[in-house]
Design a protein around this nucleic acid. Sequence first.
DNA 1: GCCAACGTTGGC
DNA 2: GCCAACGTTGGC
Length: 156
Amino acid sequence: MNMRYWLMKSEPSDVSIDDLAALPEQTVAWYGVRNYQARNFMRDQMKIGDGVLFYHSNCKVPGIAGIARVSSTAYPDATQFDKSSHYFDPKSTPETPRWMNVDVQFVKKIDIISLADLRTYPELEGLRILQRGNRLSITPLDPAEWKFITGKLAHA
DNA sequence: GCCAACGTTGGC
DNA sequence: GCCAACGTTGGC
């Protein structure tokens, strides 16, 4: 078991929580991660069933917009081989792919918990996304943080 | 649109 | 291996 918890950022103009809910199987390949630390989280630590906080970034009201789950282990990100993709990486080959992704499946939408809200809870002081200068698009959560957010703050 | 903070690149 | 230059992220 040993379930882990993650916060994953997505720009809603790219994939929003509503987009995710509307997709076939309500599942999306978490493509486009081009940061090694974030990739390593997916590749080395994520397991099917891990909890995901779906975070809207770079938008009018940044914050946690829904709950999701990891629904595959990591596999090569198809966009790295697609010349027409913004995420194309000429240095990557199918034999030795650089970039991986997992699949993420919708669980539920919640009333957005804004970044400003998140900052008001002492329980969440350690949340990686609240630390100064944090830019990592995938960050781990403590079970206590997960519990607090999904139990006390999340309202469907 | 601004810009601080951070990650990556590449010359040396 | 250092580090300056550059590109990106993402809140505001």
